[in-house]
Design a protein around this nucleic acid. Structure first.
Length: 681
DNA sequence: TTAAGGGTGATTTTT
DNA sequence: TCACCCTTAA
């Protein structure tokens, strides 16, 4: 490998890559090649003597982490790439807690609850069956945790009855997590921070382990993540934060751009490097983006530019209602394809503010027989009933899977409540074993009543029995029989009817369950294939073992030639040759519900959302707005978003507006005449 | 009185 | 699309 990065990096990128002596903040405009900077910098660090495992690159999503590792691999080779500590905030937290959790009284195999698990613990802890109440609590508690508040502090900060109730539930919730030896996603950040701030030995150890830290999407960090980074990098402050204040759109879930503002004062040696050259969009698109974002106060000055030509002017589509908007979107897609400007359907994206806006576009695209995919919607496997059953299967495969145990043991309810599970959890923590293992321990009788132990044993025996049968049921018929027996044994259909008021919903859930059973049974084989041959038979247990792999492949529906429909939020980080921003109306973008006062901060975040949307486009951008929209039975006037005016579509290049062009030419002629009149000043 | 069916309204989401 | 509310019919 050459000693210097590829010559094709621009000066700002080079500066960002080569600044190794201290803290570095890269303000990476949209499409400015930030991933390239991060991966090149990793290569540079390796050359500078860092070991791969000493370099931590932190992202927000698993997908981003995976992509970064891939990109790094092509630059530094597979061996070094494998050892790099590239991970999400949360998986870094998991790593820390697995290794050091004992210092916080956490057993090594603690459980991580997903948001579904959290919801059921909250329902239980708060004594409600109402999902919306529980969701409200979950939301409030999570925000508090993201601000670094514990239950007591939250109680003190609570401003109204709802918040006071949430704080009270939070206390019980935390007790329960502790008893189960479980943590939630927020704890994966909060607890490592607690460890590093209270335990000097652990802090020194980890600061030594991770010598250099790179953070991607820095503008999305919350208060707790800021503190975690701060204690990870210590006084040495060897880190590179890469982010864009103009793309901070997650304030509502705790991200704070204070983290960007604070950085220079917390690290006086901080080197701030803006990346302004854009390698993605045409001049017209960038001009509109710059014009819109100019309405926001700046933290760091930055203006995107590119070497590409001005390109197509931005199209403004004024529509008579949602149906019309969808029709025009379809027409535009067909037109651009007919003109040969877009060979593939995957060159198009339709972006909108709220998920439900996808519906009407789906209808229109289906009618026009244009393939599309809606990203963001929850998949079949995210449904509660499917996750219930997956928990059972996971437990069959691995009895030490505590979250699976907790879910299976309590769905359906079988007289094993949180008291029993709490004691079992404590017992398991004490003996450093899984909850399932603990359940058969002799000495458990000292911790639990005979009756509780009886129920637990009954459950344990049933799981073992089921595991035995699953090991032997082979082929789709045997599988289906077994799986249906299982559902009957645990009374799952009854559970659905009991837990759901609405009979129709319960029936729909049950039908999902049947689909899922069929899906597994089919995978157990023994069915004739295309060649007439029977497929190879597998046992239910074998299929259960591969289920997580199958699920992750099943999710991969991309690679297809389809138009993308997605929310503005989910579009961040992506790009398409042709983008349509839909429903750019007051009330929707910026979003506003009746009688709420829009704070300047809220409006600014909405503006950044618009900015993110605009900068997704490479070649053409269309912005559609509703002149009329339906409200109930009547049609009301739609007001175009203020952001449309802010784009200043008729200013700038002079190409779109002949009047502007004329004015400029006159001014130029006058200037020339003036220059001739007074030669050389 | 109850069930069924239409109409309506909807922030944004990852771990 | 999905959940909820209100109307309507038996």
């Amino acid at each position: 490998m050459s000693s210097s990065p590829p010559a094709s990096l621009n000066p700002a990128q080079l500066e960002a890559v080569h600044h190794l002596s201290g803290p570095c903040l890269v303000i990476a405009g949209a499409g400015s090649g930030k991933t390239r900077v991060i991966t090149t910098k990793i290569a540079r660090l390796l050359e500078g003597g860092y070991l791969p495992r000493q370099i931590a690159a932190i992202t927000f999503t698993n997908k981003a982490a995976q992509e970064m590792r891939e990109r790094a691999k092509s630059l530094v080779g597979p061996k070094a790439a494998k050892d790099l500590a590239i991970s999400t905030f949360h998986s870094l937290g998991v790593r820390l807690l697995r290794e050091e959790g004992s210092r916080l009284g956490l057993k090594e195999q603690f459980s991580i609850l997903d948001s579904d698990d959290v919801l059921s613990v909250l329902k239980d802890a708060g004594g409600t069956t109402d999902i919306n109440t529980a969701r409200q609590w979950q939301w409030t508690i999570s925000l508090w945790k993201n601000q670094g508040l514990n239950a007591a502090q939250a109680a003190a900060a609570a401003k109204n009855d709802n918040e006071r109730a949430a704080a009270a539930v939070m206390t019980r919730y935390q007790e329960r997590l502790a008893a189960y030896q479980a943590v939630d996603f927020d704890d994966l950040i909060q607890l490592p921070l607690k460890l590093l701030t209270t335990d000097a030995e652990a802090r020194a150890k980890w600061q030594d382990k991770l010598r250099y830290v790179l953070v991607d999407e820095y503008q999305d960090t919350n208060a707790v993540q800021y503190e975690l980074l701060k204690s990870l990098v210590g006084d040495r402050g060897m880190f590179t934060a890469v982010g864009d204040d103009d793309q901070s759109i997650y304030g509502w879930r705790g991200a704070t751009i204070e983290n960007l503002k604070r950085l220079p004062s917390d690290y006086p040696l901080l080197k701030v490097i803006p990346l302004e050259q854009n390698y993605r969009s045409t001049g017209a698109i960038l001009r509109a983006a710059n014009n819109v974002i100019a309405g926001n106060p700046k933290i760091y000055e930055k203006k995107l530019w590119s070497e590409y030509g001005d390109g197509e002017p931005i199209a403004l589509l004024e529509c008579d209602g949602e149906e019309h908007e969808a029709e025009r979107a379809v027409a535009r897609i067909n037109a651009l394809r007919a003109e040969g400007k877009a060979p593939n359907y995957s060159d198009f994206a339709i972006l909108y503010r709220a998920n439900h806006q996808a519906r009407i576009f789906e209808q229109a695209l289906r009618r026009a027989q244009i393939p599309y995919k809606v990203s963001g919607g929850q998949s079949f496997f995210d449904r509660a009933e499917i996750k219930d059953l997956c928990a059972w299967l996971r437990l069959l495969v691995n009895q030490d899977d505590d979250p699976a145990f907790l879910r299976a043991v309590s769905t359906p309810k079988r007289g094993i409540g949180h008291q029993t599970l709490g004691s079992l959890g404590e017992f398991a923590a004490k003996w450093k074993c899984s909850m399932f293992e603990a359940l058969f321990a002799e000495s458990l009788s000292s911790a639990l009543s005979t009756r509780a132990i009886g129920s637990l044993h009954e459950f344990g025996r049933y799981v073992n029995d089921l595991e035995y049968r699953a090991r032997h049921a082979e082929g789709h018929e045997a599988a289906r029989t077994l799986l249906m027996e299982w559902l009957l044994d645990i009374g799952y259909e009854q559970h659905l009817t009991d837990s759901e008021e609405n009979e129709k919903v319960a029936a729909a859930r049950w039908s999902n369950v049947i689909d899922f059973i069929d899906w597994i049974a089919k995978r157990c084989g023994g069915l004739p294939e295309d060649g007439g041959q029977e497929s190879e038979k597998q046992t239910v247990l074998q299929v259960a073992q591969t289920i997580s792999i199958i699920l992750s492949i099943a999710e991969r529906g991309d690679e297809q030639d389809q138009v993308t429909l997605t929310t503005l939020h989910a579009s961040k980080g992506l790009e398409w040759p042709h983008v349509l921003l839909a429903g750019v109306n007051e009330g929707l973008l910026p979003f506003k519900v009746e009688d709420d006062d829009m704070t300047p901060e809220r409006l600014q975040e909405e503006r950044r959302l618009m900015y993110v949307g605009i900068t997704r486009a490479r070649q053409t951008l269309a912005v559609s707005t509703l002149r009329r929209r339906k409200k109930g039975r009547e049609t009301i006037a739609g007001i175009p978003s203020r952001f449309i005016a802010e784009m200043k579509l008729h200013e700038g290049s002079g190409r779109e507006d002949p009047r502007e062009k004329l004015k400029r030419m006159r001014a130029e002629l006058a200037a020339q005449a003036a220059a001739r009149a007074t030669p050389n000043g």
